[in-house]
Design a protein around this nucleic acid. Structure first.
Lengths: 155, 155
DNA sequence: TATTGTTATACTCTATAACTATA
DNA sequence: TATAGTTATAGAGTATAACAATA
């Protein structure tokens, strides 16, 4: 039988499940696994808009805080300023954000969403909601709420 | 006064704390922040041995499951086989692991720690313990234990 | 035909350093 | 002197594809 020989072949290389060893005691290992699952699901669900998690967080923060500078934004999100500069160029190329002169400081740029950006963000949020719903289903409402509460405290 | 003018300069660009907007409702955002904190602390504490989180997880899994193949190891850790091949070359170069012929399958390599590798892993574990202690202090014993329990369920 | 391990490429992200123009 | 933004480079990690040897 094909099924039996496939099972046999598999047995040769992965007979027993692997022991985690000390990894089982490391919070970082499990946090990383959850984070990977979430980001991969996010990227998959947001694929129609080609938006990655970091870009999404930048768009949301500009929406909630229009007119602020790159350095402030980068600090809030923990994105290095060199990386943020390139990311904003990409978002500008897509006509989703605009950089204007900052009244008080000629070195700084004030960041805003464009009309296109606001429109795109509406669609992006709908896709992000779907992702969040899948996560909720995976974790359960109770777990999710308590996890969120604790992690907010940590940050 | 220097202090006052510095404060004034700061006020111009970061007067108010930033609003998180919808980010505050996304579990992924907070999971990512915790994961970043943990990995950065891990890398800092393990700097004397120049070991990164992924390498550490590979060493622990080889220790707990000697003789298994690369493909099995990679699947267990979610590391892509091409990436794992390069990582194992690096660990082999440092004389921490060895690849032997696998009895049943001439395509596969069986992975083992060398004597050097076991010795190094002893020191690595001590540093990893310090990292875990710092995390425990940061989170609190209660939070940590409950988080670990929940995240284990998820994986 | 499928799998194991390898090499190669492209892209994202992190971490630096160096540069300019302001402050 | 220090800061805001830019450019460049190096390294890690992810995602593919293609390949040789073997199953």
């Amino acid at each position: 039988m094909a099924r039996r020989s496939a099972a046999k072949a598999k047995n040769r290389s992965s007979r027993k499940p692997l022991a985690l060893g000390r990894l089982d005691r490391h919070l970082g290992y499990f946090v990383r696994r959850l984070q990977l699952w979430i980001f991969q699901d996010f990227i998959k669900m947001l694929a129609p808009m080609k938006v990655r998690p970091a870009q999404y967080s930048v768009l949301l923060l500009i929406e909630a805080n229009p007119g602020r500078s790159q350095s402030v934004l980068g600090q809030a999100l923990g994105i290095e300023r060199a990386r943020l500069a390139r990311m904003l160029h990409e978002l500008e190329r897509r006509k989703w954000i605009a950089r204007h002169a900052n009244g008080g400081d000629a070195r700084a740029h004030s960041l805003y969403l464009t009309g296109d950006g606001k429109l795109a963000l509406t669609r992006i949020k709908r896709l992000a909601d779907r992702h969040e719903a899948r996560l909720l289903k995976r974790l359960g409402a109770d777990h999710r709420a308590r996890l969120l509460g604790w992690l907010r405290e940590f940050g």
